[in-house]
Design a protein around this nucleic acid. Structure first.
Lengths: 223, 223
DNA sequence: CACGGCTCAGACGTCCGATGTATCCCGCCA
DNA sequence: TGGCGGGATACATCGGACGTCTGAGCCGTG
């Protein structure tokens, strides 16, 4: 195994074992390199790789730190990976989302707070009845993010966030300027919100399913 | 933005735009470095980072290639990330698995082939009635992997594979400490298999839920 | 002609040392 | 007391040199 890969494993080991805790500062590059028995250049490759997936946070002029390791942070890397997938696998990603999102919405029905519901309602009102496609897409992302965060599961939240990534969503919506897609989306959002207000998990789940299925159906007919 | 990060973005761009296709070979490091306007050292950091998440495949003495970009391959990086999470988030991962696995099992009920079912049955038979805990856990992973792959969704399959990692340790503890966990697991596996044979999606879904919920319940009472 | 070992050019792996640049922190001065 | 330099520190980047591995073609042998 290459020394760089060894270094990656060793740093990972230090974190997993607890020798390095979230927020901790690593020894400076030259020291750590000596400690792990490799050159600074090779060590930097290891650090750079770990920083791409948000394990480490390097700050020029300051030092290198272990990130918070929050699920949210770490799963951000997922969206980077998702970006590489072409249209032929978008349907599979959407299928996964179709499983997760209704479940998350149902969970939110019993756990989301009134404040969060108010915030969602306010957001929908501010959007108006005839928003631009760009605004709608942004609002759509925000709306679902808000609901899923109400499920209280940060892993689920980050996962869905990654799956619904900007690329996928943008690509889908770009062509979806079709007939009444905007109005339909808005109505479905309001229906989901109403179900959450009623604390009706099954209704919320169903509306979420309908919401995603309509996108899926459209996408399937288009590809 | 640092030159290395620029390089990462540029390489990513070349792949996403289709200028580089899966399996393609990149220009040699010195050439690519010159092309992107940075030093070979810095370029190597970018390449190393992309290779950690399985976007690129570097072969010493040969060259650097774009991987197949299969969802399975790319989501392998997920398990690397998941490894960093401590026990306090295991429950959240398990909750996500509890959503996905029953859905995947239900989907498999209608799509899995007879050959795949035979393979699963054979695997269960080979395990015997009183396996070691390690064997059981390995077989458990394999069993679920086999079923999920029967769902026909490779993204779902890889995702569950990644998520199952952290709960593996939990399963080992359980097997070691809980009375009859081995027998119970075996019985549940056979029940799931029977439901799949019957092409009974709802029964399969329910058994999968029961199967995971029992682990979750035990884990919750222990932590 | 087919096969296998050998040689060699090419490409990645690793290291060194030097210089640039951003941050932090402390002491100086008003 | 508070704002302002100016090191000291640590990461950023570079260029070059040398080691190591791989793939492919050459060449002798059966």
């Amino acid at each position: 195994m290459a020394v760089t890969d060894e270094a990656i494993e060793k740093i990972k080991g230090m974190i997993v074992s607890g020798a390095l805790r979230p927020g901790d500062r690593l020894p400076k590059e030259s020291e750590l390199a000596a400690e792990l028995g490799l050159s600074r250049n090779s060590l930097r490759e290891a650090v750079r790789a770990l920083s791409l997936i948000r394990i480490l946070d390097v700050r020029q002029g300051d030092g290198t730190y272990v990130t918070s390791l929050d699920p949210q942070l770490l799963l951000e890397a997922l969206s980077f990976v998702v970006d590489f997938h072409r249209d032929d696998t978008v349907l599979e990603f959407l299928a996964v989302r179709r499983i997760l999102e209704p479940a998350a919405t149902a969970a939110a029905a019993t756990r989301i707070s009134e404040d969060q519901l108010d915030a969602l309602a306010r957001q929908l009102d501010e959007l108006g009845d005839d928003p631009s496609v760009e605004d709608l897409v942004a609002a759509d992302l925000e709306f679902h993010r808000g609901i899923v965060s109400g499920s209280g599961n940060s892993v689920l939240c980050s996962l869905l966030d990654g799956l619904s990534g900007p690329t996928t969503r943008a690509r889908i919506w770009r062509g979806l300027t079709q007939e009444d897609a905007v109005g339909r989306t808005l109505r479905e959002h309001r229906a989901i919100l109403a179900a959450l207000r009623d604390r009706d998990a099954e209704a919320a789940r169903s509306w979420a399913t309908v919401h995603i299925a309509s996108v899926e159906q459209w996408l399937r007919s288009t590809l």
